[in-house]
Design a protein around this nucleic acid. Structure first.
Length: 604
RNA sequence: GGGGCUGUAGCUCAGCCGGAUAGAGCGACGGUUUCCUAAACCGUAGGUCGUGGGUUCGAGUCCCGCCAGCCCCGCCA
């Protein structure tokens, strides 16, 4: 319905200017235009759209808002194109203008959407030209080498993937970058520790597995915090790594390979595609960062460390907060790497990615860090005029007690265990239901369905509740069959698949003879037509939860339709018309879920 | 001390650029099945939108103060 809204916007604009010439003159004088304030109706009984633009003009024109609304309506009714789209407008309340689309217009929109594989969502090329090479970087997941993926990586991975999918669907060339932690102090301490306790791990592939590595990492971290000599040795090791010492590099590569294999299993299970480009990738570009900052006079030596002092951000003492770019031991830290990454990602190919938008999906705790890094990048002129750089923050995953999610023994929950539990819970729910309903299904069916539901539930729960605030994790809630959950949405699709199986097999029906006469049909049509706008909202606001809310509402509207409106038993042309609605609902739900990274089922 | 985020129904959360009587879901209570999967649908109850001011024709939404919770703040990422 995007095109339609655009058309209405233009018609309203013109009617408003004609109805209030004095106000229009004033607006033009200050180089603005009058805003009709067109928006979706706040309630179904108000129609499809509401126009609020009359209200703010009342004071200026010293007329009642209803009077102004009337003048606008009169202008609108002289426009034949408008009258073919909307029924006669109604003035309501203090001066709102309510618009209801004509059934002819709704049917035409529906027909267009039924014919469009993209369900009305425009490709970016036809929307507006993009500068740079049109690519978008989505930086997400980013686990640390030598550590297992845990709940902390869940949100970044799932949200980042979904955003990447939406942007790809819109036609951007998306770089899904896994900025893995494969560099830095942690590495120095791990290698130093392994040299002492398990040197074979540093020279031979597969000498130890990731579980052991995690164990060693914990020991190393403990020693690092307690033992000053160890700390110094670890820092030396980092310097060796950063300066390319062959033995250290070899050990480092082995550790990375080991971790990579493990990560890949999780990504396969979640159906997530990523390009690994760890922190180490930017090693050759770090020096340039220092030089650039130095030549633009941003770099300051402070207590032997090289820093940039931030503007408008002060530290404990009230003085500007420094960001350390090079430590006094000569080592670089994550701020340096992040700056090098920004520079590289905006730089044109071949010395960079030529991106026009950078998106970072990390926890909200890093908000200050990114604010600082982005500020420095701006001041150093590394962000082109058309460039956009955004931090997409998210809150902690908490347990149902409101505290940080942990195992009973108080340890961090491994991602693989969490996914396993979701699937096994889905499986026992399913087996119970099959028994209750006396259904007989094959083991492969049970495995496929429980796997799909389990993973879908975890993903959907996270995406639908996406906000900056913390997120309360609950298996019971996410696997519930009712409410705003993945199983509820999947079930709506299964119902449609049922119709297809039982007789609507060729959903490739004629769409020229659509005939609707039920309120529940029109509600479904109106809901289906909102899809394109929702996708653009997600693209702009980077909030997958908007898409989730929409899909849930669509499922609800469909279930109401399904409950009361017979499809297969209806006479023609209703039967074909309703089948068309079912087909489009299925396509929309499927497409929406795909954009969330969630696969669908025919039966469950 | 400074900064960020959050505070909406018993619980979990929506609420778009400020717009009409603040919405869902869960839970509670009650109803619906000769019919395409009832894993559904319908109804009832439940609110000082943390709090006090301000701006505005109009504030859950914007501004300021206060209270509470979480997070970040120089050589970890």
């Amino acid at each position: 319905m995007l095109r339609l809204v655009k058309t209405l916007q233009i018609q309203l604009q013109s009617a408003l200017e004609k109805a209030c010439p004095e106000a229009a003159k004033i607006a033009h004088a200050s180089d603005t235009t009058l805003n009709p304030q067109l928006g979706p109706a706040s309630k179904p009984e108000f129609g499809d759209f509401q126009v609020n633009g009359a209200l703010p003009l009342a004071k200026l024109l010293k007329q009642s808002p209803r009077h102004i609304a009337l003048a606008i309506v009169e202008q609108l009714q002289t426009n034949k194109d408008f009258s073919s789209l909307c029924q006669p407008p109604k003035i309501a309340g203090p001066g709102f203008i309510n618009l209801t689309l004509t059934t002819k217009c709704l049917k035409e929109e529906l027909r267009i959407q039924l014919k469009d594989q993209r369900l009305g969502v425009p490709l970016v090329d036809s929307a507006k030209p993009v500068q740079g090479n049109g690519s978008v970087v989505v930086d997400f997941s980013s686990p640390n080498i030598a550590k297992e993926m845990h709940v902390g990586h869940l949100r970044s991975t799932i949200i980042g993937d979904s955003l990447a999918r939406v942007l790809e669907f819109r036609g951007y060339s998306v770089l899904r970058l896994n900025h893995v932690g494969d560099w830095g102090t942690q590495f120095g301490m791990l290698i130093t520790h392994l040299k002492l306790v398990a040197p074979e791990a540093l020279t031979k592939a597969n000498a130890i597995d990731l579980g052991d590595l995690v164990h060693f990492y914990r020991e190393a971290k403990k020693r690092f915090d307690e033992d000053i000599a160890f700390k110094t040795a670890a820092r030396q090791e980092v310097i060796k790594l950063q300066s390319g010492d062959p033995l250290t590099i070899k050990a480092w590569k082995l550790l990375c390979d080991q971790s990579r294999k493990e990560f890949q299993q999780i990504y396969n299970q979640l159906d997530i595609r990523l390009t690994e480009r760890g922190e180490s990738f930017y090693n050759p570009y770090l020096k340039q960062v220092i030089d650039d900052l130095d030549s633009s006079k941003l770099l300051v030596n402070d207590d032997e460390a090289k820093c940039v002092f931030l503007e408008n951000i002060s530290g404990k003492d009230g003085k500007p907060l420094p960001m350390i770019i090079q430590k006094k031991d000569g080592g670089f830290n994550y701020a340096t790497t992040d700056l090098a990454a920004i520079r590289y990602r905006f730089n044109p190919s071949p010395e960079g990615d030529g991106a026009h938008r950078l998106i970072y999906v990390t926890d909200a705790g890093q908000a200050n860090h990114f604010a600082g890094v982005f500020q420095i990048a701006k001041r150093a002129n590394w962000i082109p005029d058309y460039g956009r750089i955004e931090h997409v923050p998210f809150g902690l995953v908490q347990g149902e007690d409101g505290k940080k999610l942990k195992t009973r023994s108080g340890e961090t929950i491994r991602l693989r265990d969490l996914l396993k539990e979701a699937v096994s819970r889905a499986e026992s729910d399913l087996r119970l239901r099959l028994k209750e309903e006396g259904r007989n299904e094959s083991e492969s069916f049970i495995m496929k369905v429980s796997n799909t539901i389990g993973i879908a539930a975890v993903k959907y729960a996270d995406l639908s509740q996406n906000r900056k605030t913390n997120y309360q994790f609950s298996f019971d809630r996410m696997l519930a069959l009712q409410g705003n959950t993945a199983p509820y949405l999947l079930y709506a699709l299964v119902r449609i698949a049922g119709i297809t199986r039982k007789g609507g097999g060729d959903l490739d029906i004629a769409i020229e003879n659509l005939d609707f006469n039920e309120l529940k049909e029109w509600s479904l049509i109106r809901e289906l037509l909102k899809f394109d706008e929702v996708i653009l909202e997600v693209e702009e606001g980077l909030l997958p939860s908007r898409l989730c809310t929409y899909l849930f509402e669509l499922s609800q509207v469909f279930n109401r339709f399904y409950d009361q409106i017979p499809v297969l038993k209806a006479n023609e042309p209703q039967r074909s018309s309703r089948l068309a609605l079912c087909r489009l609902t299925a396509q929309t739900l499927k497409m929406g879920l795909t954009l969330l990274g969630i696969p669908t089922l025919e039966r469950m």
